[in-house]
Design a protein around this nucleic acid. Structure first.
Lengths: 208, 208
DNA sequence: GGGGTCATGTAATAGGTTACATGATTCT
DNA sequence: AGAATCATGTAACCTATTACATGACCCC
């Protein structure tokens, strides 16, 4: 994914990070990820986790350090970090912090093609988006307050604070966008509607 | 990808959108995507394009409307939008505008694991990030000014304006983050450094 | 007329998600 | 004791990216 890294999936980064504390077996890695709330920041998926663990092992970044058994549950394979794995962790994390990467969020894609919808509908949709954004803002704020209130150092929720910052910027942007479409003097709505009608002949589809 | 949509790749959305204007052949779709600058917003990839076109055709959202030939170049298969394709375009685009989706940018992942690096190194890295962010900001501003200066309606660069808004929010966040780490009174640096040292025994790797 | 790049696609490979499978606890 | 959920993993399928191929046009 990220180019030349042996394992590109960000789940692998979480695995390396957790194993840098102590050896674990895959299921425990998954549980930690969920309980920690890190699954909000890194796409987690039961199946992918095993895949990633296998890739890391093949790449020599982690190794089996034994198998344990608890009660009569199936055997668990426990993995630990190698020195190379530790290097990879530091290096990868550093890269992610230092270098902004070009990403492709869905809303950007939608904005780039937004002319395919008529402006009055877009305004409708944007207003509904604003409602949802406000819900999310409340949710994240709550999460942060709860964490901080329970004595957790703020550093542990810094990724949520980042999310919140971007969310607020997006809200401001969308509000302004709506105003720019609807402003009765200078609004884009009129020209947009005309252009849209011209491009979009009624029922111009090829019968499928 | 996006759940239940027959074709989930956002490249398909661009294809539907372009074909809603007029029939095209795949190569032309790719060229348009690049020339339009939409490839900045939707991950473009020659191979993926053909895949996506095949998927859309199988799903009945587009159909071959003939093959053309120009000069002695190989035959091009020209595709057009079906009525169902037009519906899908409107529906999908509406969904993307209305519903914020949870995404997983690399920087968020990094922030959630940032404790694995020592604070002074993190500050270094964040400062370098700020430089890169400033470069990008300049680049995007330039792009917008150029477009608007050449008479293009601002609507056509609205996705770049969105990007710019988020970028500026990120810059503010990172600056604040640096201050919160380094503040001599209340800075997180001291506690963080201690915790990091405790977690990170020197040379604690398993020999690989 | 030979070297580059444009135009056009196919095929091989690797990556990721979903579905399947199965025994163990725990709850009622 | 039966139902629900936890724990643990494998396998099948789909998607996406990279590499491979090949003929045409264009410039020197």
């Amino acid at each position: 994914m990220a180019g030349k890294r042996k394992v590109g999936n960000l789940l692998a980064l979480a695995v390396l990070s957790y194993l840098s504390r102590r050896p674990m077996h895959p299921y425990e890695l998954g549980r930690t990820l969920r309980e920690n709330g890190d699954a909000r920041s890194i796409k987690y998926n039961h199946g992918s986790l095993y895949m990633v663990v296998g890739q890391l092992a093949r790449a020599g970044l982690i190794v089996e350090v034994g198998t344990g058994r608890q009660g009569q549950l199936p055997e668990r394979t426990v993995y630990g970090l190698t020195d190379e794995g530790r290097r990879e962790l530091r290096d990868w994390l550093s890269e992610l912090v230092e270098q902004p990467r070009h990403e492709y969020p869905g809303f950007v894609a939608a904005l780039s093609l937004i002319g395919a919808l008529p402006p009055d509908q877009v305004v409708e949709l944007l207003r509904r988006r604003l409602d949802r954004l406000a819900e999310r803002r409340a949710e994240i704020s709550g999460l942060i307050e709860e964490a901080v209130g329970s004595g957790l150092p703020e550093l542990f929720v810094v990724e949520e604070e980042y999310r919140l910052t971007l969310l607020e910027a997006e809200i401001a942007f969308v509000e302004r966008f709506v105003r720019r479409i609807t402003d009765p003097e200078t609004g884009w709505g009129r020209a947009w509607a005309r252009a849209h009608a011209a491009w979009n002949p009624d029922g111009g589809g090829v019968p499928g």
